[in-house]
Design a protein around this nucleic acid. Structure first.
Lengths: 119, 119
DNA sequence: CAGAATCCTTGACGATACTG
DNA sequence: CAGTATCGTCAAGGATTCTG
């Protein structure tokens, strides 16, 4: 039997999914939730340089896609925790690998880049 | 010993690398080279919907990063083949996993999305 | 065939300030 | 603390046409 979805097909829903994963900050946020639930400010502090607006947007889309769950405690001051859903945790596996690949191969890529000075 | 690079650090080069990987079409092009070298037009035909300009740009950056190699045959009509370098093939491993994840979990994501009708 | 050239659109991302 | 609200930009991506 052939596969049901093919990212190479222009109209395939899997392409939308893959584009969402490819969004600038998805890999970072999912990886930041690797160690368990985290609060908004913890995420913001951990993913250096991300703005609250962008973090919110990213979390909202991940939530809409069922990858992240949000739990607001009825306390004062407010407390909100984000966690990976089982689906999100399944995505974490490949995304962690991508993250590790990036961290491991920085020297290789920088070497390749310096070999081709931009004119 | 701690790790040398951390994508969570704002100024870390690994973040640049990860952003490059996250570029819209990188995952598609790298996966399209899974089966071996391919010509420009083959890639264009296989990755449905990509325009020649974007394909060229993507290939050029992948080349600059040492992930893809380009070989132009001196023939007429012109023939150019693109292939993954060893470095590119090492990236293929996690990226293939991401691609498969996307293709496998379309139903889950669509279910999650329909659970939250956009107002 | 493999692209280069051109022009254009848009939405993702960012900086800053404000609020329940 | 956990966000919204605004405003601005800019570069990635796209459509089209042309060429060695």
């Amino acid at each position: 039997m052939g596969k049901a979805y093919d990212v190479m097909a222009a109209t395939c829903p899997s392409r939308t999914v893959l584009h969402r994963i490819g969004a600038r900050w998805t890999v970072f946020v999912v990886n930041a939730l690797d160690d368990g639930p985290r609060r908004f400010s913890e995420l913001k502090g951990h993913i250096r340089g991300i703005t609250p607006k962008v973090l919110t947007e990213t979390l909202r889309s991940l939530e809409a896609d069922g990858l992240v769950s949000r739990h607001a405690y009825d306390e004062n001051p407010p407390r909100v925790e984000y966690a990976l859903t089982p689906l999100g945790r399944s995505l974490l596996v490949p995304l962690r690998a991508v993250r590790l690949w990036a961290e491991e191969h920085v020297p290789d890529i920088e070497a390749a880049r310096s070999r081709r000075p931009t004119p």
